[in-house]
Amino acid sequence: MALMQERPQDGTPPAQTAPAAPCLELDGLAKSFGRGRRQVRVLENVSLTVGQGEFVSLIGPSGSGKSTILHLIGGLLPPDAGAIRMEGREVTGRKGLISYMPQSAALFPWRTIEDNAVLAREVAGLPRAESLALAREWLAKVGLAGYERAYPHMLSGGMQQRAAFVRALLSPQEFLCLDEPFGALDALTRQDMQQWLLALWEANRRSVLFITHSIEEALLLSDRVYLLSGKPTRVLRELRVPFGRPRAEDVADDPRFLELKREIYEEMKREQARQETAAREAAPPAGRFGFRR
């Protein structure tokens, strides 16, 4: 890439503006579901921050409380303990402050692509003409020119995902939550979409919280990565990704990249093993007949 020569890969992270008021701050969040004996502790003291214009990933084994964290941020559930702050203000339990991209595109089948793209702005009550103009501009930028009036079922999975991304991008809230956005795509499309997102983000620099269970994806895209444990979920480790911006396409071949990837992989494996022993100790195999009071 030509851009690489202009900006040396110096290993320093992008400058974080105003560290005093990060875009998002989760402070000691705890959450359980159920009651009494059947109570399941899902989150236990989860604290993390996303700085202004920072791309932060959460990786965790499946079944860790990633979606619960998102639901808490979105204000759909109240935390049992802890606080959520955005730009220094306490926003725990408040809805409508984030823009969001779910795992599957979740485009509304009765809306054309452009009408889907403006949905979040519509919900926020912004004027339609302006939103539509923006949507057309962005759809063209992501390679969906000519599909503005098409219905979602006419598009391939990758194209739908791009439309869903435009919808999230156009929503007026600055903070972007991406919940395993490429999880449902095939490997090749996924790789394409990662490169595409990388280029797009580097040109726009919104604050992003990215949820994934692909280590490689997290390392490729993020400034920082939080490694989550299994239930009850804690932050196991916080990790600064030592590659500069814009990130080279072949960064995945860098020996340091491979080293980091292996390190995280080992840590996750240890965590999984620990989880399994804990599960065995908590519920020793019951007698022959399988009941236990």
């Binding site: 979105g74 409508g96 984030i98 969001y100 979040a120 919900v123």
Partner: peptide
């Protein structure tokens, strides 16, 4: 999924 999307964006 669409319902949860609508909830997340504060509809």
């Amino acid at each position: 999924v669409m319902r949860s999307y609508m909830n997340m964006i504060g509809a």
